[in-house]
Structure formats: C-alpha cells, structure tokens
Simulated assay, not measured.
Amino acid sequence: MTVVRTARPGELPALVEHPGDPERNAATRAYLAGLLDDGCTRPEWCLVAEGPGGRPVGSAVLWTLPGQEVPLAVVLFEAPGDAPETGVALLDAAVARAAGLGAGELEHVVDSPAQAPQFQRDPERRYEMLRRAGFRPVRDGRRFGIGVTEEILAALPEDDPRLTFRSLADLGPEPFVALLEDLLADTADARLAADVRQHGARRAAELLFEDTAGLKHEPEWWEIGFDTDGTPAVISLPAENPSVAVIGFVGVAPAHRGKGYATSVVVRGTRVLAANGATEIRGDCDAANRAMARAFARAGYRNFAARLEFGRTTTDARTEAS
C-alpha cells in the first residue's frame, strides 16, 4: 500500500529530486518556494508518497490564488514511472485534503511539450493516472506567449479606431458582467460552455468575473470597447498571476464577430500590461476557438504549448493523507 503523507519541513521546497536532472530540480524548487512565499500553497498542502527509507518518490501540491483559503488545483504532481498506483493514491489524497478545506472541485493541467517549472514529461502516462483517479478532460487548450520588447511593441498593430474603450473604474462591474453573459451564451470554450450549462449564462458570467478578479489587476486595466454604433463590442481583462502577466480574458460580443476585433482586443490587453511593466505576457484559448488563436498569432504571440485541463469533483473523496 502506498503511504501518502504531508511533506516534512526538511523536504520543502525540494520534494522529489531527480538524479542527473539539475535543471528540473532547480526549477521545481524555485517554483514551490515561490508558491509558499506568495501564499498560493501551504506546507500542509504539500503531499508526498514515500519510497525506500521514507524518501519522497512522488508529490502532489494543492494550489490557490494568493489570499484565498480553498485549493483550486493540483500542481507538481509526480509519480514513479513504474508505479502508476502511487500517482493515483497521491491524487486521491490531494482531492480528500482539498475537500476537507472546502473545495468542491479540483483541477490539474498538463502542458505539452514538457517545460519548466513542472516538467510534465510522459503526458500519456499522466493522462492515465488522472483518469484512474476520477479526473476527466474539461478543456483542450492552446497556450500563447510574447516577450515584451521595444521592437515587439513597435510591431503591434495600431489600436482599432472603430473602438472606444472605457474602464472598470469608469463603468463599474455591471456592464462587464452583462457583456460576459452575452459572450458566454455563444462561446467556443468548452469549460465556459460547461459552466453555462451548469449555472446559466448570468451566473457563469458572474463567476468568470469573480475568478478573474482574484488575479492582480487595477480597475483602469479592465476595459470594454464600444463600437461606432455605441454598443459594447469587446471586453479585455488583463491581469497578473503570481508568476507572469496574462491576457486574462478577452472576448468579442456575438453581434460584432467577424470584424477583426479579436486581434484588436488582444493588442489592447498587451499594451495595457506592457505599460504597467510586464516583460512577458501569456494567454490561452480553447483549441476549438480558432478565431482567438488567429488573433493571438496576428498580435505577435507564439503558440508554445498545448494544455489539456482535467477536473474532478471532491464529493466522492475516498482517502486522506496523514
């Protein structure tokens, strides 16, 4: 039987060390140290599976946004390549720990190709462990990134003269939630469409606004772009997560799609973040949302990874780590 327990103080922030892989070890140590410093995790949220002599051979760390008390996701999930049952035990324990902290669901994302800081190698093996632990795919995403330099900023398309932008500081939240409700009623994003089916478009819009508001931002950054006819056409919610600036959420109202506004709103968010000190910006979209993928590419972003998102409810949590 696999023994899963809370990591001991002397095992943090290293957790699982891979002999002969100093790049991976340094990156994951720094990543977990940053999560602990930022309040995105706690020592008691760091679980390990024991190997010979009690040494950690697998790990699963619960993650949340800074300042929040309820876990949202599992990060730094690792298990020995020849012991998938260890990975399943770790995931079950993480779900149980999250359930005890009030989480109703938990997610985990797998990026391909593998990269720092989590180095999620052998994705097919990871998919199988996640499925065996009750996680199900909820979104097939694509990740985009851009480095902010003077040359990059100079190459960005000009702001769209058809759009007049007004900020959250000026408008207040209600127009933003109303526009999100309109967008979500006809969305190509699988996760957001599932939220609409579960909660209805209005509540899904409120949840999206609240979740994005959990990221660091200023009210002046968040904007609605109004078309020349005075109607709301685009929404831009740029922000910063604990490690990098992000486009956050951008979208085009159904009545204004097909006008090229998707690129315009990505460019707008990029300029806002760059003006506030971002040196790297990331964004993502559902693989099915080809219009948004084209918008990122036209704004100079590079598709650097695919991201398969998994989720599991915690209502059937079966075990707990000591």
Rank of each mutant, 00 (worst) to 15 (best):
Q115S: 12
A169F: 02
A188T: 05
G172P: 05
R166C: 04
E128L: 15
G134A: 03
R55C: 07
L184M: 09
A178P: 02
H108R: 08
D160H: 06
Q120L: 07
L72M: 13
W63V: 10
L91Y: 09
H108A: 14
Q120I: 04
R191Q: 12
P84T: 04
P113F: 10
L90H: 04
E158W: 12
R197Q: 15
A98S: 08
A96P: 04
L184T: 06
E150F: 11
A194I: 02
A79W: 10
A89K: 07
V148P: 06
P113W: 11
V70W: 01
P173E: 14
L101M: 07
E181T: 02
R162A: 15
M129H: 12
D92T: 10
A193F: 01
F77Y: 11
D186T: 14
F77C: 03
L179R: 00
E158G: 15
A169K: 05
T64V: 06
E50Y: 03
L91K: 06
V148F: 07
P84V: 01
D82F: 08
V109Q: 08
D160R: 00
A188H: 10
P123F: 01
A185L: 06
A60S: 07
P84I: 00
L101A: 14
V74W: 07
L179A: 03
Q68A: 13
L192F: 12
A93M: 06
L153K: 09
G104N: 10
L101S: 11
E150A: 15
G67Q: 11
P117R: 00
A103F: 00
A194F: 13
L72S: 12
G58N: 10
L183K: 14
L184C: 02
G54K: 00
A169H: 08
A178L: 11
A154H: 14
E158A: 14
A79R: 12
V75A: 15
D170C: 01
P84F: 01
A114Q: 12
L76I: 13
G53F: 11
R125E: 15
E78M: 13
G134E: 01
D82A: 07
A60V: 08
R97F: 05
L179E: 04
V196F: 03
P84R: 05
P173I: 09
A60R: 03
F119E: 08
F176T: 00
A194Q: 14
A154G: 06
V110T: 09
